[in-house]
Simulated assay, not measured.
Amino acid sequence: MSDRPAQGLRERKKAKTRALIQKEALRLFREQGYTETTVEQIAEAAEVAPSTVFRYFASKEDLVFNDHFPLFAEALIAAPADLNPIRAIRVALREMTAAQTAEELAEGVEREKLMFTVPELWTASLTNVSGTLRSMQEILARRAGRDVSDPEIRNITGAITGVMFAVWFDWVKDPGMDGPAEMDKALAHLEDGLRL
C-alpha cells in the first residue's frame, strides 16, 4: 500500500482534466506540428475552454513538460546508502520506469523528441534541465556527505547527465529502442569507468 494519502474526487477530476489536455496537445503536436497547433485547437480536442488550458498550463510550452523528477528524486533518496552515485541513479531510474505504463513511457519519448527538435521548447527546457541537474547534485552530495559545491560531486553529476542525454538523443531518433534498458547499459558502462 502507498504511503500517499488518497486523492479526493475534486483532485482526481483535476488530474484527469490536466492529463486529457496534455494528451490531446501531444497528439495534435505529433499530427500537425508544434508551431502549427493552437491552444484553441487543443482546448477543442480536450472539450474544454482555452482559459481552462491556461488554468492548468501557464504556457503552450508547459503542455510538453512533465516533471517526473520528484518521483525520481524520491527513489534516489530512498536508494540504499551504500550504493555509489551511479548505481543509486540506476536503481532510482529502474524504480521510476517500473512505475510507468508503456503509454507513459511512449509519451515521455514523444515529449523528449519535441524538446530536442523544437527550438522554442529546447530553450524553455534549459531552465528545467538546469534545475534538475542542481537538484540531482544536491541529493548526490547529501548521500555522499559532501558539500554540494564539491568539484567531484559536480563532475559525477555532469558525467551521469551527459550519458543520460546521449541516450535520450538516440531514443528520440529511434523510438522503438528499449530506452530504459539502453540507459541502464550506458550508466553501467560509466560505472565501469567508460572502458573501451
Rank of each mutant, 00 (worst) to 15 (best):
I139Y: 11
V172S: 06
A141D: 06
G176P: 06
A79P: 02
G162Q: 01
V163A: 01
M136R: 15
D150G: 06
A6I: 10
V163Y: 05
D67A: 06
M183R: 04
Y56S: 00
T101M: 03
T17Y: 03
A25M: 03
P80K: 00
A73F: 12
A49V: 11
I160A: 13
L20K: 08
T157V: 00
D174T: 13
R111D: 05
D82H: 11
R12A: 09
L133Q: 10
M164L: 14
P175V: 03
E107Y: 12
P151C: 03
T38V: 00
P119L: 10
V148D: 07
V109N: 10
L196N: 09
A159V: 02
D170S: 15
L190W: 03
T123W: 14
A79N: 02
Q7E: 14
E36V: 10
V39D: 06
R18V: 09
A25H: 09
V53W: 01
Q7C: 11
P70Y: 06
S125T: 06
L71N: 09
T17D: 08
E104S: 02
G176D: 03
I156R: 05
K113M: 12
A98N: 09
V109H: 06
A78N: 07
I89C: 13
R18A: 14
S125Y: 13
K113G: 08
R90P: 01
T17P: 05
G158V: 02
I77L: 12
S130I: 15
R27S: 04
D150E: 03
I139M: 11
F116K: 08
I86L: 00
Q100S: 07
A15Q: 07
T132Y: 15
R87H: 05
L121G: 09
A186D: 01
A186Y: 07
E110N: 10
V91M: 10
K185R: 13
F29C: 08
T161R: 14
T101D: 02
E40S: 15
G145I: 13
Q7V: 12
H68I: 11
D62V: 01
G179P: 05
I153Q: 09
P5L: 11
D184C: 02
R12V: 00
E24I: 00
I160S: 06
F165C: 11
D192R: 12
K13N: 04
Q22I: 04
A181R: 15
V129A: 13
V64A: 03
I153C: 10
E40T: 09
R146P: 10
K16H: 12
F116D: 04
